[in-house]
Simulated scan of single mutants.
Amino acid sequence: MPMKSLSFFAILSLLALTLPSAIASDPSPLQDFCVGVNTPADGVFVNGKFCKDPKLATADDFFFTGLDKPRVATNAVGTNVTPVFADNLPGLNTLGIAFARVDYAVNGLIPPHTHPRASEFLIVQEGTLLAGFVSSDQDGNRLFAKTLNKGDLIVFPKGLIHYHANVGRVPAVAFTSFNSQNPGLITVANTVFGSNPPINPDILARAFQLNRRKIMDLQAIF
């Protein structure tokens, strides 16, 4: 096999290295809340899922294909995320790990967000990304940012706000890995300006030092 700077299989090998830390992370609470319902007569509820009888498990429960296929980035921010979580790879349940492929259009981005239950690392397969995270108030809200090219990776600590954006002239591809089977996702703009029902705009106006009309305009967008 000819040598390449970073093959698709090398990427998957690097992602697998997160497994030891994944074991150390879960089991934490894997959902924001859990409303009790009547359980199936023959079901066992473990880490947010009912478990199949292990005698009925097959190799397909632990198999996912197609991560090498490009996706069209058509959402509002120019990205397309292909998750590989326990919802679409049942064998991941209780293993404390999850993956995703991210396709970026030119100027596409994953906006500032946080994963409340997982650290994340991102590795670039194609293109050039600008990625960074911001430390907590206690640490002075410092920005840690790097420009990443093919073969580069960056780690986002658990719970900290982070982002990544395509700053190159062509589409980009990256792979991410999480040390939780359900890392959670809180997108800052959607949460603050798109809550249901909306946060009182006077509260947000004082918090962001903006006038009430600007806050209401932002709420209308999100």
Rank of each mutant, 00 (worst) to 15 (best):
residue 65 T to Y: 04
residue 218 L to E: 01
residue 10 A to R: 04
residue 50 F to K: 09
residue 66 G to P: 01
residue 209 Q to R: 15
residue 158 K to E: 14
residue 195 S to Q: 06
residue 156 F to D: 13
residue 180 S to G: 05
residue 100 A to L: 06
residue 214 K to Q: 12
residue 24 A to K: 15
residue 129 L to V: 09
residue 104 Y to F: 15
residue 180 S to M: 02
residue 181 Q to E: 14
residue 135 S to K: 01
residue 163 Y to W: 11
residue 206 R to K: 15
residue 219 Q to D: 07
residue 69 K to Q: 14
residue 145 A to V: 14
residue 124 V to T: 03
residue 100 A to D: 13
residue 12 L to C: 08
residue 25 S to E: 12
residue 68 D to C: 03
residue 45 F to V: 06
residue 110 I to K: 01
residue 142 R to F: 03
residue 56 L to G: 00
residue 55 K to L: 14
residue 42 D to M: 11
residue 152 D to F: 12
residue 16 A to H: 05
residue 56 L to A: 13
residue 18 T to L: 14
residue 134 V to S: 06
residue 190 N to M: 07
residue 172 A to G: 05
residue 48 G to L: 04
residue 13 S to Y: 05
residue 144 F to V: 12
residue 114 T to V: 11
residue 161 I to A: 13
residue 3 M to C: 08
residue 85 F to A: 12
residue 19 L to K: 15
residue 131 A to Q: 03
residue 210 L to H: 01
residue 24 A to E: 13
residue 118 A to M: 04
residue 53 D to T: 08
residue 202 D to S: 13
residue 181 Q to N: 07
residue 3 M to Y: 05
residue 30 L to T: 10
residue 102 V to E: 08
residue 72 V to I: 11
residue 97 I to L: 13
residue 41 A to S: 11
residue 194 G to D: 03
residue 177 S to C: 15
residue 69 K to F: 02
residue 196 N to A: 15
residue 91 G to I: 09
residue 3 M to F: 08
residue 213 R to W: 10
residue 165 A to V: 09
